[in-house]
Amino acid sequence: MTTPTALATDEARASLHELTIIDVRTPGEYAGGHLPGALNIPLDQIRRAVPDIRHATDRGDVLVVCASGARSENACKILAENGVTAATLSGGTGAWAADGHELHRPQGAPRATWGMERQVRLTAGVIVLLGLLLGLVVHPAFQLISVGIAGGLVFSAVTNTCGMAAMLAKLPHNRPRAADLDNTLAALRNR
């Protein structure tokens, strides 16, 4: 499987009006700020959306975005397995904002939503510290919790997947509203 084409932020901005933009982050992350015109189809729903995304490629190129580029690259690979060609945004919405480009927010959306990567770092750090503390105070076997998290982080880096992010994405604060996939897919069909 080849690596999907990656567009730089300025390159994507120049052709924004020609692209169908799919944001594969959680609804909470999407609400915190997304590329203009982006449609939210969370990564865990991408397979269900393949026929409609395929239809969108008839009208132009598809750009898949996430916070840093890892989830969008995974989404592009899933799409490629199903015969759909899509590009990813280099550095994701983080790079987009860092380059001074505007992020849109739904009306009434929170402005300070933590990105998934930051949530994973916090959760992993807390669990590692808890494992070490319990290992010192209660029983040394609790240090295995820290070992397990370290192993999970190594596995995450090697496979470019993150089980912890998948679990955190299901928490209520990451889904302030349900991903309205049916309406999103209808909007995708009508583009």
Rank of each mutant, 00 (worst) to 15 (best):
P4H: 07
P4N: 09
P4K: 04
T5F: 05
A8L: 13
A8N: 13
S15V: 08
H17M: 00
E18T: 02
L19P: 04
T20C: 04
I22L: 03
I22F: 00
D23Q: 03
V24H: 00
R25D: 05
P27S: 08
E29R: 00
A31D: 04
G32N: 05
G33L: 08
G37H: 00
L39A: 00
I41G: 00
P42S: 11
L43E: 04
L43A: 00
R47T: 09
R48E: 12
R54C: 10
H55D: 15
A56P: 10
D58L: 11
D58H: 10
R59W: 11
R59S: 15
G60I: 11
V64Y: 01
V65N: 06
C66Y: 08
A67P: 04
A67R: 09
S68P: 07
G69R: 02
G69V: 08
R71F: 14
A75Q: 08
C76Q: 14
C76F: 11
K77N: 14
K77I: 15
A80M: 13
E81P: 10
E81S: 14
N82P: 07
V84Y: 01
T85Y: 01
A86P: 01
S90W: 06
G91A: 13
G91N: 11
T93S: 14
G94T: 15
G94E: 14
W96M: 07
W96E: 07
A97N: 10
A97L: 13
A98I: 09
D99A: 15
G100N: 06
G100T: 05
H101V: 02
E102R: 04
L103M: 05
H104G: 05
R105Y: 02
R105W: 02
P106R: 12
Q107D: 14
Q107A: 15
W114L: 15
G115A: 15
V120H: 10
V120A: 11
V120E: 07
R121P: 03
L122I: 15
L122A: 15
L129A: 15
L130R: 04
G131K: 01
L134S: 11
G135F: 10
G135T: 11
G135R: 03
L136G: 13
L136H: 14
V138A: 15
V138N: 10
H139D: 13
P140S: 03
P140M: 03
F142H: 02
F142A: 07
S146G: 13
V147N: 05
G148C: 01
I149K: 10
A150N: 07
G152Q: 06
G152W: 04
S156K: 11
A157K: 12
T161M: 14
T161C: 14
G163E: 13
M164Q: 05
A165P: 03
A166P: 02
M167D: 07
L168A: 06
A169E: 06
K170M: 13
K170Q: 15
L171C: 10
P172G: 03
N174F: 04
N174K: 07
N174A: 08
R175K: 06
P176E: 09
A178T: 04
D180H: 14
D180C: 12
L181V: 03
D182S: 11
D182T: 13
T184K: 00
A187R: 15
L188N: 04
L188K: 05
R189P: 06
N190C: 12
R191F: 12
